[in-house]
Design a binder for these strands. Sequence first.
RNA 1: GGGGAGAUACCAAAGCGGUCAACUGGGGCAGACUGUAAAUCUGCUGGCUGAUGCCUUCGGAGGUUCGAAUCCUUCUCUCCCCA
Length: 376
Amino acid sequence: MEFTVISSDPYSGARAGVIHTAHGAVSTPVFMPVGTAGTVKAVSHIELEREVKAGIILGNTYHLYLRPGTDILRKAGGLHRFSSWQYPILTDSGGYQVFSLADNRKITENGVIFHSHIDGSRHIFTPENVVDTQRIIGGDIMMALDECTPYPVEHDVAADSMHRTHRWLERGLMQYRNTTTLYGYHQAFFPIVQGSTYPDLRRLSASTIASRGLEGYAIGGLSVGEPVETMYEMIELVNSILPRDKPRYLMGVGTPANILESIALGVDMFDCVMPTRNGRNGMLFISEGIINIRNEKWKDDFSPVDPGGVSIYSTQYSKAYLRHLMVSREILGAQIASIHNLSFYTNLTREAGSRIMDGSFTSWKNIMVEKLKRRL
RNA sequence: GGGGAGAUACCAAAGCGGUCAACUGGGGCAGACUGUAAAUCUGCUGGCUGAUGCCUUCGGAGGUUCGAAUCCUUCUCUCCCCA
């Protein structure tokens, strides 16, 4: 994997670049739709390619390990072939499930013991076997097993957790280096910075991880409930330490405004379930702000979902029709909302990239952030 | 013509003397959602009120009772069965 910074914004930390992977090049800044269980919910790969124009999508180790399971994935020849997606894939390690499935797991030094949310069966995820599973899934970028700490958390708890994540990184890295791809192409391995909202921990975590000489670096444990300003402070601090010549991936973020602000702080890669999950629940991110399409006020608004949208799904269907579909719980409603939101997100990061290259990023970003936060 | 059942809030449907402004569903309205246990979850849904509280409601009218959606009389209307 190769990353090239093409242009840097003179007024902020923003940069535009390209990541070259075995399954193609990805322009950054990039938004990566989340496809947890081998599918970006409600969106086919055809629409993902043609309408969303997604350059790379996510898969999840925990979920894919449980279903369909590693035997099937190996027989299929990896997730690309299994799901018929020919572009890059990044797989999360299951570290987020340490946070989101906190009631079903136990953390030990060796790894995380999960009780399957599907059938209750017991499974242990170690830094090593999570690499093995990701080798089988075959993502272009694999993530180290980390512990996504909740917020708020005591300093000493956050420190213990962070140090464990660092120890797990060493073990995962060893496994990564002692194993090889199963399908004939390179897979990168990204470590994850933790440290909650404590500057000293974030600084230590970033410098520890930056010293590993890897192909990209992720920032985890944010957008878990902390004030947004605190999140930005942590990003800025971490990015001042992470290498400039490698991609920086802010995990799980966020709103359109969050993404633009984070691009300004030097983040290159994003993923978030918001455009899909919130979309399925009626929240639409459009050029003028945020709307809840289920609201009564849209019942006779026959204007396009987003007149400023780039996808035909945004411009062809009316708000009134989409509201009808959502209120009636029709499947098409979830599809249109998801495709619209995702195309909005990918277009936003794409435009950020072109603004960085032509030097207009910062002024544009400042206007857009205010606009995109508005509730209509 | 004879016999029987029933009328409760937007709809359906509990309740059968006080703890009922009235269970529960649906519908409606609004909110939440940030590396997806989510096409999920939460709240409100007679009026006024920040809360307490107050006022008007259970087909209509009248009555019994300290007190009625609940008991009695009567009227109106629905539905079912037998002719």
